[in-house]
Each structure stands twice: as structure tokens, then as C-alpha cells.
Design a protein around this nucleic acid. Sequence first.
DNA 1: GTACTGATTTTCT
DNA 2: GAAAATCAGTACC
Length: 203
Amino acid sequence: MILPRSFYEEDTVTVAKRLLGCCLVHLEGDMTTSGRIVETEAYLRQDPAAHSFHGRTTSNSILFGPSGHAYVFFVYGMHWCMNVVTGGGPGGEAVLLRALEPVEGILVMEKRRGLKDPRLLCSGPGRLTQALAINGKYNGASLDSGPLQIWSPDSFSDTGVIPGREIVPATRVGISRARELPYRFYLKGNPYVSRRTVRNARN
DNA sequence: GTACTGATTTTCT
DNA sequence: GAAAATCAGTACC
């Protein structure tokens, strides 16, 4: 089933872990692309690394809106990154989606990415948005209706985590402020986590 | 395998 | 003007 709004209105770190194993789906015309989420990062309020840290601006206003919506931003002059707005508090918190395991529409993803190695299709925040054709027009989109959706896995254990899958906490990637905080989470041993995660596997 | 660099644009974090 | 929640290609070990 599609994750309801209430799923996202929980503690942001909890949501970051529970999203592992869920399926991100993009419907565009008759092309469906989807993948299982295998790596996430939490960005909190009072978090010097978060875009919301210095308050609301025009570019980050979606972060202060309702949970369960997409916050999509452009970075390094060429890449899009997708977050999910989370938290039940005053806003400003989100979970960055860092890597997917490709599921549906792999041929379409290969064409959009210009390569065929399945491990390189969605293994990074910029890669997954390119593979699923996610861009700024989805900034602010609701994830429980419309063409961009997140589905729960078939079953949850009581902790909300898929049975048999071990979640590893680690430090975040590509930031300089508060980089020591263990707010990155990935599925242990999954071959589709991002390259930088594999390289920093000790943390 | 690791290390370095260029691409390219928005924001002022 | 500098920094940024990145990626791909190249060089070298």
C-alpha cells in the first residue's frame, strides 16, 4: 500500500530507518520506474547541515510544509536530490533518499542514465533522480497521491523494519557541518548502496 | 583499488 | 565570490 501521511509524521530518524525497504515509484505516462530504498540520511531541525538550519527561505519553504511531501533541490550545478519532508513538529526536517535497488522500468532507467550496469543506475542521490526522472517540478509534490509515490514493503516487524534486514548507521556524506552525526542509514551488505558508502564502510 | 579534477548553477545555509 | 546533501572520467599504484 501507499504510505499514508501519518507514516511521515513521526520522529525523522525513525522515518529514515523505516523507509529502508520501501519502494519509490514514479509514473510518467505509460512509463513506470521504481526501486527499493536502500540508503537514507536524516536532516533535523537544529541541525547545522540541514537546509532549514537558518530558517525559512523561498528555496527551502517546502521543508516547512506538511510531512509526506517531496523536497527536491538542485545541487552542484547539475544534479537533483530528493528528500521526503518528515516529523510531527514545527517542520524543517527531511530524509534524503541516497540509493535505490532498481525494480521496475530498468530499460527506461538505462536509457535515461546512458549506461547498463544495474549497480550504477540508482546508487547515489543524483543517480536515482536521473533514473526515475525526478526534478524540480516535483518539489512540493504529495507522495500519497499523484505520479510520485512511496509504497510500504510487504510486511513490517513490530519495529517497523523489514525482518531479516540489518540497518547500519553511519555518518553522512558530502557535508562539512555536523558531519560526525550518525544520521545515515543503509541496508547491510546491499550491493546497491552508493559508492561513497561502500568506500566509507567502516564508519 | 584510490586520488584528483572538471562540469555547471543556485544560493547566500 | 565562495560553497554546495554530486558524478564521471582519467591517471596512477
